[in-house]
């Protein structure tokens, strides 16, 4: 299968700060890609640039064969690429149900929404129980499930997860990783930014390691596990 997402020489600049300095990435249909690197390496900026939340100052992003560089964020849900952002960012003053409904905002067909709804509730039965509750009153783990569920409501072909295990108890972290495998079985392609490198490389097919806004290493998960570059990237050496 050919590439679902291709990124060529992508650069992201915030004022004088070069967060991403020209990277190339490729995600093929059905893969799980781990995007690794120390804090400030440019991982979140990369994901944000992919969905138009951060401005791409140079480079080209191609999704499903379409040039989507510089598209507005609101276009991506209907194109089939969704980001579940860092820090969960559920709508705390909306109920669980309303959060999910917003996730399906790009869909018009009532039947399609209902199917998406059932799928999310099957994945996360706890959300069905709490659907009337304000999202802000859920626990951290439940909020993470809601954030992923909300992103799944638009039936994405490619789901971008930014730090899905951040700040969660170890047991919940395991659930999150199990979920990623389940999603792959359902045919979702995933790109995951993770702090938990060993777990990420266990489930990923391939990975990219970023350092100072560049790709420092890339390869299959097995290759990366045994690579020195990975450790160097985390220690901050170039």
């Amino acid at each position: 299968m050919s590439a679902l997402l291709t990124v060529q020489s992508l650069q992201v600049q915030y004022g004088a700060v070069n967060a991403v300095r020209g990277i190339d990435l490729e995600v093929r249909e059905g893969e799980i890609i781990a995007l690794l690197g120390a804090n400030g390496a440019g991982k979140s900026s990369t994901l944000n640039a992919l969905v138009g939340l951060a401005p791409a100052s140079a480079g080209k992003i191609t999704f499903k064969g379409q040039d989507v560089t510089g598209s507005a964020p609101e276009r991506f849900a209907s194109l089939g690429m969704t980001l579940s952002p860092e820090g969960r960012r559920v709508f705390g003053t909306l109920s669980v149900q309303e959060n999910l409904l917003m996730g399906a905002y790009s869909m018009r067909d009532k039947g399609e929404i209902k199917t998406a709804w059932e799928r999310v509730f099957d994945l996360f039965p706890i959300l069905r129980e709490r659907r009337e509750q304000f999202a802000g009153t859920l626990s951290g783990g439940q909020q993470q499930m809601l954030a992923v569920g909300r992103a799944l409501m638009s039936n994405p072909r490619l789901l971008l997860l930014d730090e899905p295990s951040l700040g969660l108890a170890p047991k919940i972290v395991e659930q999150v990783f199990e979920l990623i495998s389940v999603l792959r079985k359902q045919g979702v392609t995933l790109m995951v930014v993770e702090q938990n490198v060993s777990m990420a490389l266990e489930i990923a097919d391939r990975g990219y390691v970023m350092a100072s806004g560049r790709i420092a290493a890339s390869g299959t998960a097995a290759e990366l596990r045994n690579s020195d570059t990975l450790q160097a990237a985390y220690l901050g050496a170039d």
């Binding site: 969905v51 939340l53 507005a72 964020p73 609101e74 276009r75 991506f76 849900a77 209907s78 969704t82 980001l83 952002p85 960012r89 709508f91 705390g92 003053t93 909306l94 309303e98 959060n99 917003m102 996730g103 905002y105 790009s106 909300r150 638009s154």
Partner: peptide, 17 residues
Amino acid sequence: RAAAEDFSVARLMGIRA
């Protein structure tokens, strides 16, 4: 209401600004 709480995430859901 969603946009009032978090505008960028609302846009990610496909809600047009």
